[in-house]
């Protein structure tokens, strides 16, 4: 699949396959085309060449609501209307299932409640969005995606603005959901170590092309990363999981004390 914009090729011959129960991480330097990839996969953009198939059917052949029942997106920095309650926000995940008058059924409400319980925000249901913290809003958005009952989940830097505790919580939750519901997931990561910890497969993009693709230990190696990011790095195994961890090498390390 290839995507061009104003004559510039943003993504060139990217070949990806998502499978149920597996999380694919997309990494790469700024401007590598990571977000463009998510936008292509969720049909906000159309590829110039090649094809994207969902359940074996060309993406452009899907009806909007039909597609939203199968594929859910957790955006990087979603704009949420502050005067809606968390409950109303999660119920919006039922949009692709509603009839022409847009009225939710008892079943829709039960599904929305289960989704909120799953992500631990049911006790916040009556709060306004403006009264929630960044981490709580993120979990509300995840609950909304779950309420869509998708088979495919796309995440664009799901933990970009969260503190370290919420990063771990959110990613553990997503990894558990991917397992339990056998979701085919693709997540964009800025943080190489988070990607390494939580993904089954990594795709390293650089200037719109795939530089490396495979398990974290295959992709996260000093020569590959140096080529893509242009900075020298050390890679060491994580003390608990054994997954590769990336440490940039500072030219002149400041004194520790």
């Amino acid at each position: 699949m290839t995507f061009s914009f104003n004559g510039t090729t943003v993504l060139d011959r990217v070949d990806l396959h998502l499978e149920p129960g597996r999380m694919v991480g997309v990494i790469g330097p700024n401007g590598a085309g990571k977000t463009t990839l998510v936008r292509l996969l969720s049909r906000l953009l159309t590829p110039a060449e090649g094809q994207i198939q969902l359940n074996g059917r060309e993406l452009s052949h899907w009806q909007p609501s039909e597609m939203a029942r199968v594929l859910a997106v957790i955006p990087q920095n979603p704009e949420l209307p502050p005067t809606f309650t968390a409950w109303e926000m999660v119920l919006m995940g039922r949009t692709p299932y509603l009839g022409w008058m847009g009225k939710e059924s008892e079943g829709d409400r039960v599904i929305a409640r289960r989704a909120m319980e799953k992500t631990g925000v049911w006790h916040l249901a009556g709060r306004l969005i403006s009264q929630l913290s960044g981490g709580e809003q993120q979990r509300v958005v995840i609950a909304r995606a779950l309420a869509q009952q998708p088979r495919v989940l796309l995440l664009d830097e799901p933990t970009a603005h969260l503190d370290i505790n919420h990063q771990v919580q959110t990613l553990t939750l997503i990894a558990r959901l991917v397992q339990e519901r056998q979701l085919a997931a693709l997540a964009v990561f800025h943080d190489l170590n988070l990607a390494s910890q939580h993904c089954d497969e990594l795709v390293l993009l650089h200037r719109g092309t795939v530089v490396a693709q495979g398990s974290p230990s295959q992709v996260l190696t000093p020569p590959v990363l140096q080529q893509a990011y242009g900075t020298e790095v050390d890679v060491m195994p994580h003390p608990h999981s054994g997954r590769p961890m990336v440490f940039p090498v500072c030219p002149s390390p400041p004194s520790a004390n």
């Binding site: 969720s42 609501s65 979603p78 704009e79 692709p96």
Partner: peptide
Amino acid sequence: QLDEDQARQLGV
């Protein structure tokens, strides 16, 4: 009332 991208991704 969400942004345009989210509305599209919810099937509108």
